[in-house]
Amino acid sequence: MKVSYYPGCSLLGTAREYDESNRAVCGALGIELEELEGWNCCGATSAHSTDDYLALALPARNLVIADGKGLDLIVPCSACFLRLKASEKKLLEMPLADFPYRGSLKVKHLLNFLAEDENIQKIQERVKKPLAGLKVACYYGCLIVRPPKVTGATEPEDPKEMDRLMAALGAEVIEWSFKTECCGGSLVLARPDIATKLVERILKMAKEAGAEALVSCCPMCQSNLETCQGESSHRTPVFYFTELLGLALGLSGVKGWLKRHLIDPRQPLREKGLI
């Protein structure tokens, strides 16, 4: 199977391990990721906070490039995902002459794509090292689900795609109520005090629910959840969901990905003999 891949800017830098694990996992599942040629930044919060045309046209250029290929467009970053979906919705309602988009494809978040029945089955068949005993809280954040009119999420208050994937790997998925609470990622540089408060609430809830680690599907959330924990000695590791997929599938790159984390996530894995 072949799909178009839009990594987004973070995956070239701060979220390199996410990009590396995405490519390795998809490779192992026989999914060919074809990176969109000459893709540009989606504009993120800065564009839609500043100017409507920027917010529409920056993602539109990528959609038009992908449109020519006719392959579904897979997006691993929730912020990019929402910007692309929002632009797509507008373009289909009111075409933009500069960026003629025919809508020959589906824009999908990588998490939702890998959680499709066919892919989950492939994953289940290939699990070599079940993550038995690893207690994880699946953290979805905001923009993969909200607003549902744009994202198409069927259960925006209680999504289950990551839960299903982690359960398929044999991990112990804990029930908790902060799956889609905001981590304040867009404010982390300009108002770190706000972001820190939001992150503390999320981590407190995850710990109370008995999680040893969080699992994330967004480079903004992941980086924010790590940096806002500061220097405390009781820090909670935050995995990318594809890193845990790679671990369970027995892929060789796992150690390299985990070494890139600001909060070393290897302790709980060592305790369970997983690495």
Partner: peptide, 20 residues
């Protein structure tokens, strides 16, 4: 906050992608 947005958009304008 607007200073952040400005720096972010300047980066896109210069190279097409954000150079962190």
């Amino acid at each position: 906050i607007p200073k952040f947005h400005e720096a972010f958009l300047n980066s896109i304008k210069a190279r097409g992608r954000v150079y962190e």
